[in-house]
Simulated scan of single mutants.
Amino acid sequence: MRRPGLLDLARAYRLTALGFFGYKAATLLVNALTYPRLSPQPLPPGRPRVSLLVPARDEAHNLPRTLPGLLAQGADEVLVLDDGSRDGTAEVAARLGARVLRGQPLPPGWHGKPWACQQLGEAASGEVLIFTDADVEWQPGALGAVLHELSRSGADFLSVYPRQHNLTPGERLLTPLVDAVLLTFLPLPLLRFAHPSAAAANGQLIALRRETYRQVGGHALVRAELLEDVAFASRVKARGGRLALALGREVLGVRMYRSYPDSLAGFGKNAGSFHGRSRALLLASAGWHVAAYTLPWLLPAQAPGVRLLRALGLAERTAVNLLTGRRTLPDLAEGLLGPVTPLLALPVYRRALRRRVAWKGREYEQ
């Protein structure tokens, strides 16, 4: 039996890459047709009591921008838990008008954010608990929109992806990939399948009914998870809970990271968990993304399929941004980063291969 020659390898590569992009394009189309997009809504009459819950560690720079919008939503209570901050987070939150809880020391076996959320969940009095990060911007009508979608979907667990606000060139390099991963890999209709692996969530905004939160034991369910949001959704689903996702569009926004190094640290913390803590899978993912997005630009343009692969790699991020409502010229121009994005992401994989990761002054085992 003869060994595959270069032409056979080239053909296999071309077909695999086209299949990869074809799957992602089909998934994006399905999501464009099925994903709920939030729009401003008044608070519904007879609504349940609502608690807005903000875990905050060293967030004094974000709260003056985000907390006033949260406080103006008309929730029954807004609780900010100061998780051992060193920058005056508690004082800023109290001055702006929130009720501030002082976080207890981190117990053995817990990670920081799940522990902060667990304390918030125990202190909250609402029938609906909405956990939201300190960097999420709530526009007028956002709470009504979240409650409307929670009711419309009939879900026990709703997670919303805020629209990304990326202002500097550095934060545009990798941060928008959060949306690309969500919208091009997981078709929303798969959430209807019973298997808990068909789950996704964004810890920037999670809304649960108190009864669901109590039944699953709260964030203790994911006490030692780095990617606690997705794990929480999966385990709620495994216990019979119904999941729903939505795009925040104009009512919810977020500025996650302020620079390229911040993006590396944030994504490096989560990438290992996203790849099942498998070093082999991390290496395969890094290599494949370079092969799919970067390699076509190193091959002769006249080679079969190369121009098509280049076009697909350029179009993907632009199409994702259109779906999420990021439609300024700089947002759309992010598609041009397609060929270099896998190279820019290599330090993320390198961080994720380490046995320990650091985040907000704490170190965790992977």
Rank of each mutant, 00 (worst) to 15 (best):
Pro261Leu: 11
Ala301Gln: 08
Thr175Ile: 11
Ile130Met: 00
Ala10Val: 07
Gly203Thr: 04
Ala286Trp: 11
Glu59Tyr: 06
Glu334Asn: 14
Leu28Met: 07
Thr341Trp: 06
Lys24Ser: 12
Leu309Ser: 10
Ala142Tyr: 01
Phe157Gly: 00
Ala244Arg: 00
Gly268Pro: 07
Thr27Phe: 05
Arg163Ile: 06
Leu67Pro: 06
Ala194Asp: 14
Leu53Lys: 05
Pro36Leu: 14
Gly335Asn: 09
Ala271Cys: 10
Arg242Leu: 02
Asp135Trp: 02
Gly305Gln: 13
Phe20Gln: 04
Ala303Ser: 06
Arg47Phe: 01
Arg277Val: 12
Val306Lys: 03
Arg14Ala: 13
Leu29Glu: 04
Val160Cys: 08
Pro261Thr: 14
Val340Ala: 15
Tyr35Ile: 09
Leu38Asp: 02
Gln104Thr: 14
Pro48Met: 08
Gln104Gly: 12
Gly74Ser: 01
Arg65Met: 08
Val340Asp: 11
Val348Thr: 13
Ser125Ile: 00
Val160Ala: 07
Val100Arg: 02
Gln302Glu: 05
Leu38His: 07
Val216Leu: 08
Arg11Thr: 14
Ala10Asp: 04
Val340Asn: 12
Gly253Trp: 08
Lys360Thr: 00
Ala233Leu: 04
Arg279Met: 02
Arg326Gly: 00
Leu81Arg: 05
Gly272Met: 01
Leu221Arg: 05
Leu346Gly: 05
Gly144Tyr: 04
Ala134Ser: 15
Thr27Tyr: 00
Ala199Met: 10
Arg192Glu: 15
Arg356Thr: 15
Pro296Phe: 02
Gln119Asp: 02
Leu182His: 05
Gly268Gln: 08
Arg209Ala: 02
Leu53Ile: 04
Glu211Ala: 13
Trp288Asn: 00
Leu191Ala: 08
Pro304Asp: 09
Gly276Leu: 01
Leu346Arg: 13
Arg86Gly: 15
Gly112Met: 01
Leu120Ser: 07
Trp359Glu: 04
Ser51Pro: 04
Arg355Ser: 13
Pro330Tyr: 12
Arg235His: 10
Val320Ala: 05
Gly97Asp: 12
Ala319Cys: 09
Ala94Leu: 11
Leu38Phe: 08
Val181Arg: 08
Pro330Val: 11
Pro169Tyr: 05
Leu9Ser: 14
Gln366Met: 12
Arg279Glu: 02
Thr328Trp: 03
Asp229Phe: 04
Ile130Asp: 03
Met1Pro: 15
Leu208Thr: 10
Leu183His: 10
Ala198Leu: 13
Asp331Ile: 02
Thr27Asn: 08
Arg351Ser: 14
Arg327His: 04
Ala72Gly: 09
Pro68Gln: 03
Leu188Phe: 11
Arg37Ser: 12
Phe185Tyr: 11
Pro304Asn: 02
Ala352Gln: 13
Ile206Ala: 09
Pro339Gln: 13
Val146His: 00
Asn270Phe: 15
Val340Pro: 13
Asp135Ala: 07
Met256Lys: 06
Leu299Thr: 01
Leu295Asn: 09
Ser234Ala: 13
Leu29Gln: 03
Trp110Glu: 11
Leu295Ile: 05
Arg192Cys: 08
Ala224Glu: 06
Lys24Gln: 15
Thr212Pro: 04
Leu308Gln: 15
Leu28Asn: 10
Pro296Trp: 01
His289Lys: 12
Thr27Trp: 02
Val216Cys: 04
Gln41Met: 14
Gly266Phe: 05
Val230Glu: 06
Pro48Phe: 07
Ala123Arg: 07
Val92Lys: 10
Arg49Thr: 08
Arg242Tyr: 01
Leu264Phe: 13
Asp83Glu: 14
Glu316Cys: 14
Pro169His: 01
Arg355Cys: 03
